[in-house]
């Protein structure tokens, strides 16, 4: 009897513990998306059920091309971030010890103490035609006239990689930290070169970190708004910008909702395909 009571209390405790998570999921994730769904399939004129806003996405090349461009750029940004972050993470996790490790890790964090807007403006000050780098190039005689480094796809890429870096470095450092040095030494001891120790021992071990870092960076890039809009200039097309435009300047909430849900579904699809292609599963990565 007493046992049963304790059990029931335990259950109640568990429910109470789960409550904030449950409420958070319900109020901030499920309900808003449910509302988006309702919006996206309702005709604003007569309130009837309609799929026109989804058709619009697939029939108007402008929209799906924008999505495709956003997805491809995000994938590229993810790959670039991985390539740059991996040596950094390896250096932090394996080469540095004690204090210097903490310092270098903190240096990676510093850019995130200011808001994304400020960071982006920082890049604009550096890269614009009348900016720091352009002036330096002219002063040093490397360039004859002002150099415009802003408003290109490469600039967007730079901004995306820069703002995603930390989110790749952190999971990589934590998985690489858990790789005992003796595995690396064993790799060398058995005749491995740098490259195949990395490829056969370090990377297979770091796969969970690589996959979770990639998912985070991809989703962040895809959902980024400020960086592509501010750094991209006149040709920057970003799907989130399209959603913002539909909601705010067109007052077309129905279309915006449809785009928002499409972004969710299609990006999930891309992540799923990526996991399939790399032979990983979501539970394995997160577990």
């Amino acid at each position: 009897m007493g046992n049963l009571g304790a059990n029931a209390r335990l259950k109640l405790g568990l429910w109470l513990l789960l409550m904030p998570l449950g409420l958070w999921l319900l109020l901030l994730i499920i309900l808003p998306h449910f509302e988006l769904l309702i919006f996206s399939i309702t005709d604003p004129e007569d309130g009837a059920f309609t799929f026109e806003f989804y058709f619009e996405f697939f029939t108007e090349p402008l929209y799906w091309r924008t999505f495709l461009r956003t997805a491809v750029m995000s994938i590229l940004a993810t790959i670039l971030t991985l390539i740059i972050a991996f040596p950094v993470a390896f250096y932090i996790a394996k080469m540095l010890k004690g204090r210097s490790k903490g310092i270098v890790f903190a240096m990676c964090l510093i850019p995130f103490w200011v808001s994304e807007l400020v960071r982006t403006f920082g890049w604009m000050i550096l890269l614009r035609e009348s900016g720091v780098i352009s002036n330096f190039l002219q002063w040093s005689g490397l360039a004859a006239g002002p150099v415009e480094l802003l408003y290109t796809d490469a600039t967007i890429m730079l901004g995306l990689v820069y703002s995603s870096m930390l989110f790749m470095v952190v999971p990589l450092v934590s998985t690489l930290d858990s790789l005992d040095d003796s595995y690396i030494e064993a790799g060398y001891d058995l005749g491995g070169t740098n490259w195949n120790v990395i490829r056969e021992i370090v990377i297979p071990h770091a796969i969970p970190g690589i996959v979770s870092g990639c998912i985070i960076v991809f989703m962040l890039s895809l959902g980024n708004y400020l960086t592509p809009v501010l750094l991209g200039g006149k040709d920057s097309l970003w799907f989130t910008e399209q959603i913002y435009t539909q909601f705010i300047t067109r007052f077309n909430w129905e279309q915006g909702s449809a785009f928002g849900l499409l972004l969710l579904v299609l990006s999930s699809l891309i992540v799923w395909l990526g996991l399939k292609a790399s032979g990983q599963s979501f539970t394995k990565t997160m577990g």
């Binding site: 614009r128 009348s130 415009e148 408003y151 006149k234």
Partner: peptide, 23 residues
């Protein structure tokens, strides 16, 4: 005309700095 455009400005401050810097 798009080729002529340096950037589409979106906020007043961005416009002022584009004109002021001579860009």
């Amino acid at each position: 005309c798009k080729a002529n455009v340096k950037a589409y400005w979106s906020g007043g401050d961005a416009l002022l700095s584009l004109m002021r810097s001579g860009e």
